[in-house]
Design a protein around this nucleic acid. Structure first.
Lengths: 191, 191, 191, 191
DNA sequence: AATGAATGAGGTTTCATTCAT
DNA sequence: AATGAATGAAACCTCATTCAT
């Protein structure tokens, strides 16, 4: 194994340790010392990979699946089934309520983390808006609202469901909760 | 002014100072020292009123307007207009994005704060479910979904909009953003 | 003993501990932990009195005897004897070479410390320039150089002697070294 | 280019990088990591050339021009013009106030650096004392003071001027400041 | 009830140095 | 001879909390 591989391994090691701890306790409660102990490395090593805890949360960032969203608009026929399918995948990435709570804590914990989060949302908005526009062109979605607005409300809906679920409410499975919630949402934007 | 009044005054004084600071910086960044300095009291005095910062955020809690919700189901005719009116009132309580962000940080910052928040949500769920059941009885809302579920989704929607807005997105006015979002929501639950 | 007195005592306690340590090791080598241990207080207490080590060195600052300098120009007759007397007092304040070395390290250790030092020099320059002007008026000092320039060279001479001595050279007694050095200086500025 | 040349080149490379950084920030603030980055070498390589930062400051040492001083006493006629000429050359080596400040910080930063500095001063004292003795023999300098003492005061004067200037005071050009200061000094030691 | 100096555990971060490659 | 990832001691500093006044 060469140096590069080893570095990647150590980095992932740190990330895994952090995720574990976030899932066990919370973002705030997790200290860098705990992370390095769990990862089995020296405290100083952490700072070779991340400038601080904020920096780390950015890397743990929920995969927003922007690529998958982009691909949807190329699909023939109805778009909603494809979106629904994507939503059902969500719980693959959202292990536990505790972890999601920690992520929610993390992304609003500091101006920097928020900025990072907004950038990711921006990208998603762009990709998703195109999908909705395509849906409007095809007559699948209502055109009574601008695509951008529908898109933002969709993201709000996603965030709200995630937050609510992470606080311990809703179906025990986040995917299920998401699907139910979005069924209602789809109904409201269908032409 | 008697002793009781004076105590209530000091307590409110502390709360106001905290709200100001949360709105200026953030929940985490605000220290008890800052709060007491702003309130013009000694550090030790803080602990005569609150056990700690968590305790304090519970008192700042957004007014969930449970009372107002309860009253809605007594109204004759369509219920949605009354709900819509309530929603429009929201920005009266939600001063700035910064403050809302701080509240969002606060309510998920600790198990205790979450527990407190869940209790408040529970009460709201009870009140709102009755309203929706009433709406279903009157044929205003769809009966294809249980009232409790619709209710939870409504709260998710509220939380999501608030979180999204507090992060700096959506209409500059939270009330407007809420109204637009809920128009879509109403559409999805109308019979 | 009231609170104010106690505070003053603790502060002086910290300063004494710091001076001792500076004299034993050096400015850089002395840590805040050492200072608080020596002073017999908690680490946190240090920060109730000083923002950091730089802040502390400003308080240890050599007494520049600005007041005494101001008074000189009121004296009748020759001024040099009064200046010489002041210089002889210097070693009262400059205990050991080690301590002076630490002070020299401290005053140039950071931009802030330098700024503080420059302010003190400024004041001394003002006071001393007036003395020299008075000496020029009385015909005691040469008028071939502006008083301000003579004054600056005097301070340079003081600093140089102090630095040289603190490095371990010159007479074992700083006062003696100063007096000898300034005899030569006086000779050069006499009318 | 053979191996020896390459080594010398790398060493100089490191020194140059250090000088640049000292001039930009300060001695203390400059880290070995910064030096190696600036020099374009690996951190580990630094330790192949210097044991540590102290070691390095010794090599940056101001050139005390001992050789030039030695040559002065061979000159016929008055010696002062030759000394004055040497002093005027000083600012050729003393680029910026910042750099001089860093040097001043460096030479008193550790016992080892001080020892090294004292050795250099010793050599200079030897050389300069001989010059002054020669001047005394020729009747150019006063004999009322031992040559060694005059010599030490001269060095004090040099150090004081350098320190004062590096702190941001005196003429913008160090050479000018030195010349003015030493004119006064010469006056005091002329027969 | 109010004060605020003292506390000290515990956090983040730095950085010279080592050593396997 | 050069590399740079890993180290870990040790620095600084914060801040909720206590408690004598």
């Amino acid at each position: 194994m060469n140096r590069e591989d080893k570095k990647r391994l150590t980095r992932q090691n740190v990330l895994n340790a952090a995720i574990e701890l976030f899932a066990e306790q919370s973002y705030e409660a997790t200290t860098i010392t705990q992370i390095t102990e769990r990862a089995g490395i020296a405290k100083g090593t952490f700072f070779n990979y991340f400038a601080n805890k904020e920096d780390l949360i950015c890397d743990i960032q929920v995969i927003w699946a922007v690529e998958e969203v982009r691909r949807i608009k190329e699909q023939p026929g109805l778009l909603i089934p494809h979106i629904r399918y994507l939503i059902m995948q969500i719980d693959k990435f959202h292990a536990s309520r505790q972890l999601m709570l920690a992520v929610n804590q993390g992304i609003i914990s500091s101006p920097k983390a928020i900025r990072n989060q907004l950038e990711q949302i921006d990208e998603l908005v762009k990709a998703l808006t195109e999908v909705i526009e395509e849906g409007q062109r095809r007559g699948e979605f209502t055109s009574s609202l601008p695509a951008a607005m529908i898109c933002e409300i969709a993201i709000q809906t996603y965030l709200g469901t995630r937050l609510y679920w992470s606080m311990g409410r809703g179906d025990s499975n986040l995917g299920t909760q998401m699907v139910v919630t979005f069924e209602l949402f789809f109904k409201s934007i269908m032409a």
